[in-house]
Simulated assay, not measured.
Amino acid sequence: MADTALDRRSPHPMYHQLKHRLVEMIEEDGLRAGDLLPGEHRLCEMFGVSRTVVRQALAQLEHEGVVSRVRGKGTFVAPQKVSETLVHTLGGLHEEMAARGVSVTSRVLRQRVEPAPDEVADPLGVAPGDPVVVIERLRFVGGEPWSLSTTWMPEETGAAALDVDLTEGSLYAVLAAHGIHAVRGVRSAEATVADPEKAKLLDVAVGGPLLVLRSVSYGADERPVECFVAYHRGDRSRFEFQLSAEDPSTAQLRHTAVHGLA
């Protein structure tokens, strides 16, 4: 991209103009995640602005996840995150990405009957130690580690998925084929950091950001269908919420229910 000054007569602040110009530069030059951007001094020369303006623009781009700045090394194009609507829908990762034409595969780490842990027993409506089906999967999106999910189901429900190959298929599709459908549920999202085990599986640094999705879903008979916890890479995904105006008392009830799961 040729060196060019910004429009000082524009009603838009200089840093705002520069931010958009840098996005154009990334797109036009075909820069990819990890590519180094010109340094602050060079950007000042290219666009005829002060270092303060450059830093404001870069700070905005970093906040929006377009770039990442590393002290002493420079500013790099950041991996682009994929918005997921899993928080407010009953769909799964497979369904969400398949709708976008993106491949989802899984490495199945556990797929068996185990005694129900204490934290799982109550959501599933069973006693601690009762047999439940557990399916733990490392999920890949476009061939890249994306999330680590563990799903627990009552034994009667989960039996349908015990002997099924889930490396490329959807668990929800398997359950649906046996007439098992979730009609409502409660999900929560929170932030955490990667411990050594999760860091190794997800190919992130120990202490790196993770987004945790927890869920309990129910069938039409109000019996629990499944509960799960999924750790998503914080540098690859973000959860997207759709908001609407509603009765404040209803909103408060849902707020309380969500936090009760955390």
Results as ranks from 00 to 15, higher is better:
S50E: 00
E64S: 11
I180N: 04
G208M: 06
G65R: 07
R187I: 08
C44H: 01
M25L: 15
P38M: 09
S237M: 06
Q111A: 03
P154M: 09
A205V: 09
C227F: 08
Q252S: 06
Y15D: 15
G74Q: 05
E246D: 14
D122K: 12
P196M: 13
F228C: 00
E62I: 14
D247Y: 04
F76Q: 13
S237A: 05
R21T: 09
S147K: 04
S170I: 12
T89R: 07
G30C: 15
V183D: 03
R137D: 02
A121I: 04
A173V: 11
R112N: 12
V183A: 04
S249C: 05
E246L: 06
A182V: 10
G48L: 14
P145R: 07
A98P: 00
V53M: 01
V126H: 06
K200R: 08
R254M: 10
L201D: 00
Q56H: 13
H20T: 09
P128Q: 05
C44N: 02
G30M: 15
P38A: 11
A176P: 00
H232E: 09
I180C: 07
R112P: 00
V108K: 04
P11Q: 12
P38I: 13
L31D: 03
F239S: 00
G219F: 10
A173E: 01
K73P: 08
T75L: 01
V134L: 02
T89F: 06
R71N: 03
L109Q: 03
P79G: 12
G101C: 14
H259Y: 04
E114K: 06
A182I: 05
L124K: 13
G185A: 08
F228P: 01
D35A: 11
H20N: 12
V258D: 10
A99L: 14
G74P: 01
T89E: 15
V77D: 01
S244F: 02
L166K: 09
R214M: 10
R8Q: 04
W146C: 07
G169Q: 08
K73G: 01
R110S: 10
S170R: 10
G207W: 12
V212M: 00
L6Q: 01
R214V: 03
D163T: 14
F241P: 08
E62K: 11
R112E: 15
E156S: 13
L175R: 03
H12G: 06
M97Q: 02
V204D: 09
R42S: 02
G185K: 03
L90D: 00
F140A: 03
K198C: 00
I135P: 00
A194V: 01
D118Q: 15
V66G: 05
K73E: 15
D3T: 07
A191Y: 11
S106A: 15
D3L: 05
P79L: 10
V174C: 10
L243N: 06
G129T: 06
G158D: 14
V54P: 02
L61N: 00
A2V: 11
A2M: 02
H178S: 12
C227Q: 03
L211E: 12
V225E: 01
E96N: 06
G143T: 06
